[in-house]
């Protein structure tokens, strides 16, 4: 018997059709999420892609295939950070960034770079999960919108509570109960080339940081932090 032939393994013809069927199903699962993601509008998801995604949901989600592959898309946007600080004593005082606030992500304390990036992803996720404390009068008339907001708000509060109670946050604020800690959503806008090259603005300048409101944006304007 030819030794070389022994060391080559062919797929048995009887199995090939089954393997191909499995491959086809798997490739449909790979396509299901981006197709559903891209065919989503304010009104609906294209029914055939929605159906495909729903049918394959257990496989797509558990196998971690549920990605839209939106890298730096549709546009590169501003970054979001989370500031951790002690709450003000007065209940209704404006939320301002304090000079002793800690941040995540933080290049100085979170090293190596991958660890920093993990915190950066959490701060972006926290910002994306934001649901305002209340709805406008117009939005309140839409029952489905209200239901979705209630669900989103519950999750946002749960995430907020989880972060403030965590060991890693409380470690930096020794002796402080978690209900005395507040998290601020911070945005760093992207500067234009003119602002950097003509006006000499540095992209790391913390004076540009914006504290995002927790309520309706129309009611509470964002505040520029002013921290040096």
């Amino acid at each position: 018997m030819n030794h070389q032939a022994d060391r080559t393994r062919e797929c048995k013809p009887v199995y090939r059709r089954f393997v191909l069927a499995a491959v086809l199903l798997h490739l449909l699962a790979v396509l299901a999420e981006p197709l559903a993601f891209f065919s989503r509008s304010d009104f609906q998801v294209a029914p055939e892609f929605f159906g495909l995604r729903q049918t394959l949901a257990p496989y797509v989600e558990w196998m971690y295939l549920d990605h839209g592959y939106f890298f730096f898309a549709p546009n590169p946007g501003p970054s979001h950070l989370v500031a951790i600080q002690q709450k003000n004593d007065e209940a209704n005082s404006p939320r301002r960034l304090k000079s002793d606030a800690r941040f995540f992500p933080d290049r100085k304390s979170q090293w190596p770079r991958l660890l920093y990036h993990r915190y950066f992803m959490l701060s972006e996720f926290y910002n994306n999960s934001f649901a305002p404390t209340e709805l406008s009068e117009q939005d309140k008339t839409d029952r489905m919108f209200v239901e979705r907001w209630e669900s989103d708000r519950r999750f946002y509060e749960s995430l907020q509570s989880s972060i403030t109670k965590s060991q890693s946050v409380r470690r930096g604020l020794v002796g402080l109960e978690s209900d005395r800690i507040e998290l601020l959503r911070i945005e760093r806008p992207l500067p234009s080339p003119e602002q950097v090259h003509r006006l000499g603005r540095r992209i790391s300048d913390s004076r540009d940081l914006i504290v995002l409101p927790e309520g309706l944006e129309t009611l509470v304007p964002p505040t520029v932090s002013g921290v040096p």
Binding site: G68, A73, N75, P76, P78, L190, V196, I203
Partner: peptide, 25 residues
């Protein structure tokens, strides 16, 4: 799909996306 996603954004068409990626601290 990564490319299609970018094609939805105006910065990838007006040519500024490279700058705004570089300008993210």
């Amino acid at each position: 799909f990564g490319g299609l996603g970018k094609a939805r954004g105006w910065m990838w068409w007006d040519g500024t996306a490279m700058w705004y990626s570089a300008a993210s601290y």
